[in-house]
Design a protein around this nucleic acid. Structure first.
Ligand SMILES: [Mn+2]
Ligand SMILES: [Mn+2]
Ligand SMILES: [Mn+2]
Ligand SMILES: [Mn+2]
Lengths: 233, 233
DNA sequence: GAACAATGTTTGGTGCGTCTAACATCGTCT
DNA sequence: AGACGATGTTAGACGCACCAAACATTGTTC
């Protein structure tokens, strides 16, 4: 069997379960899956039962949602497809980074393994997609990197953006307008927790920006000059 | 409404109905559609009834199968998608011309109009796919060209291959081995009707080849030096 | 610890594409 | 003209993804 034999919803379930644990250690819930996929909880619950029967997910009723080893392998194939497709659309076909997610979300279910390998070769084996997300290898290897949400960092530090969540195209366009993308250097000026505002300064232009909490949570950074800044506890 | 809102089987039906009239003037039958799509005749019959209700096909029970004007427009969008995808896979990603048909058959249902336009631009607006088939324009324009099956031509003429049917990947590989592809020049040495053999000579190498009738029917030619050779009546 | 709100599951039902089997029509051959 | 084989249609059923509504469980609050 292979992930290509699953139908699109099952492929999306696996990818989503895996993605939830990429930047968090709490497993995803049925409700969160339903909301993200735009279906009802009953549909997700049913889908999880079938994936459990197929040995791809381990989920007892009312229990937590985990991938089996095979399920994780399949999920990484889907993540790899998605991110290589996004990179291809941006680097080769001139898409904006805010336009690629929806297109990749559909294409990932239609491409063959051969096509993905050819795209990877044509791109020169990139390791990150346009949003800074790591691209799993053909062998299903995905290095674990550490980064912190801008919203959790301490004021005063100099930071590099390594990743911006691609969940909202509107937010990506907003970031484009501000000149924020993976690779951008920042100085974190201040956190104003009760105002839900994070003040940063883009380097080297010294342009000051105030970000709301949703924006500050979508941006992931590492320390720029020194070692990675530990998350503020 | 647009062709993208139809499901994949409906898109395939429209494309197939149109394709049948590209190189022949007899409309396709229910049985032929069923065989080509790998479904039963009852499934096709049902699908045609729905397409007729949607105003894309005109088909009375036991009657002939025709596209409406809208149906034809949609069909050409699908043909355009298919042929641009094939061209892209060969020219950009290094596929062989025998490998692209199956891949394009799936991808054509998943790509957006924007993606297809970007691919076309990236390819430099090609007018033919790897099999020599004409690529409809974005406006749905498809020039009518005249060509003849090699099997119908008269011995003695010098010919250029303009198109090779992509229906059988095995046959395409066979032609690759013989050095036959769109653009190849030939001299038709002899037709042996009762032996079902067509003898040709590749130019300028003068290599002699005997083709069976299925092969000679898959190759479409025009006159090389002079005007197009009329079909032998 | 009982009540309750939030979360998850099950049940019953719809729409859709597909199939098989029964039935209808068409075209051809005698 | 009638018979018959080939072709096409219809009826009935199935699997699947999905939903709404009823039901079950969980965890938290008083
Ligand atoms: Mn998807
Ligand atoms: Mn991405
Ligand atoms: Mn297709
Ligand atoms: Mn082709």
């Amino acid at each position: 069997m292979s992930v290509s034999e699953l139908n699109a919803p099952a492929q999306d379930y696996l990818k989503l379960i895996w993605s939830a644990t990429e930047w968090s250690d709490r497993a995803i819930t049925v409700g969160a899956m339903a909301e993200r996929l735009g279906v009802t909880a009953s549909t997700v619950s049913d889908g999880l039962r079938k994936l459990t029967q197929q040995g791809l997910v381990s989920h007892a009723p009312y229990g937590s949602i985990e991938l089996t080893e095979t399920g994780r392998r399949y999920a990484l194939v889907m993540v790899r497809r998605h991110r290589l497709l996004e990179t291809f659309l941006v680097n080769v076909l001139g898409y904006g980074w805010d336009e690629v997610h929806a297109e990749a979300e559909v294409l990932e279910h239609a491409v063959s393994d051969l096509l993905i390998d050819r795209i990877e070769e044509h791109l020169g084996y990139p390791d990150r997609d346009p949003h800074g997300d790591l691209i799993p290898t053909r062998e299903g290897h995905q290095p674990r990197i550490s980064a912190w949400q801008l919203s959790e960092c301490e004021a005063g530090s100099e930071l590099s953006i390594v990743r911006i969540s691609d969940a909202s195209p509107d937010m990506l366009r907003y970031f484009s307008g501000l000149g924020l993308s993976p690779g951008t250097h920042l100085r974190l000026e201040a956190q104003h927790p009760y105002a839900d505002v994070t003040s940063v300064c883009v380097l080297p232009s010294e342009q000051a920006i105030d970000l709301g909490s949703a924006a500050a949570r979508a941006i992931w950074v590492v320390g720029h000059t020194t070692e990675p800044t530990p998350p503020a506890k």
